[in-house]
Simulated assay, not measured.
Amino acid sequence: MTQSDNTPRCMLALDLGTTTGWALRGHDGLITTGTASFKSGRYDGGGMRYLRFTNWLTELDRLSGPISAIWFEEVRRHAGTDAAHVYGGLMATLTAWCELRSVPYQGVPVGTIKRHATGKGNAPKEAMIAAARARGFSPVDDNEADAIALLVWAIETNGGVA
């Protein structure tokens, strides 16, 4: 199925983490947002969070897609080692998922997203939530607010992906 140039593409923005924020613009132009938890269970093996993430992406693509492009928040500094490991595993899973399906993806620096949303590249979490609310969204936390800001950035700047 081909799309005309004026039909919105299905675009996904992700704030990767144990609680992943997401924002999706569907083919109808409507934006849906939320968070998804990829916390490991007590009896889970080390790879279960990544299998759940893969299944979640596949289901999102099946229900709302096909997803034509994905943007993710590119984090260069983490508060702790565990957070860095989770982020790296989710990013590896995401990029492999995209490569297998020929879905273009792009990491966007945190400062770029914050600057576009608030005017400050080092804006605090509260400012990101306020910026999302000012655009008419109701994020439950900063993860969802960051994903919303990233999707808005991608839509307004074309995100550098054709």
Rank of each mutant, 00 (worst) to 15 (best):
Y87E: 10
I67H: 08
C98M: 12
H116E: 08
E99T: 10
A117M: 04
A127R: 00
T2I: 11
I31K: 13
N6T: 14
V108G: 02
L14A: 02
G89L: 13
I31Q: 11
R62K: 05
T54A: 13
L57Q: 04
D61I: 05
L100W: 13
A69T: 02
H27C: 14
S40H: 09
S68I: 07
E99N: 14
V103K: 08
I67D: 09
F72Q: 03
A36L: 02
S68V: 09
A117S: 04
L51E: 06
D44M: 09
V161E: 07
D28F: 06
A154G: 09
L150N: 03
N143D: 14
L12E: 09
Y43R: 02
G111C: 00
D5G: 09
T54G: 10
R76V: 04
V75L: 09
L90T: 05
T93F: 08
T112V: 04
H78R: 07
G121F: 03
E156D: 15
A84G: 15
E156V: 10
A123Q: 00
L60Q: 13
R135S: 10
A127K: 00
S102F: 15
V140P: 09
I148V: 13
T112S: 01
R49M: 05
R9D: 06
T20M: 13
E156Q: 14
N158S: 12
I67K: 10
A84R: 14
D5Q: 14
I129Q: 03
V110N: 04
R62M: 03
S102N: 14
Y87P: 08
D15T: 02
L150T: 07
L51H: 06
W97N: 02
A84L: 13
N143L: 05
S138L: 13
T95D: 11
N6K: 12
E144V: 00
E156N: 15
I148D: 01
K39P: 04
R133A: 03
L100A: 15
F137N: 01
N55P: 01
E126Q: 12
S4A: 03
G136R: 07
L16T: 02
T93K: 08
K39G: 09
E59Q: 15
C98E: 11
T33K: 08
I148M: 06
L12R: 12
L94V: 11
K125T: 01
E144A: 00
M128I: 00
T157S: 15
T112A: 03
S138N: 13
Q3E: 07
A92E: 13
G107D: 12
G80S: 15
L100S: 11
M48I: 13
E99V: 09
R49H: 05
T81F: 05
F53Q: 07
S102L: 14
M1C: 06
G160S: 12
I70L: 10
A127M: 02
T58W: 00
P66Q: 13
G111I: 00
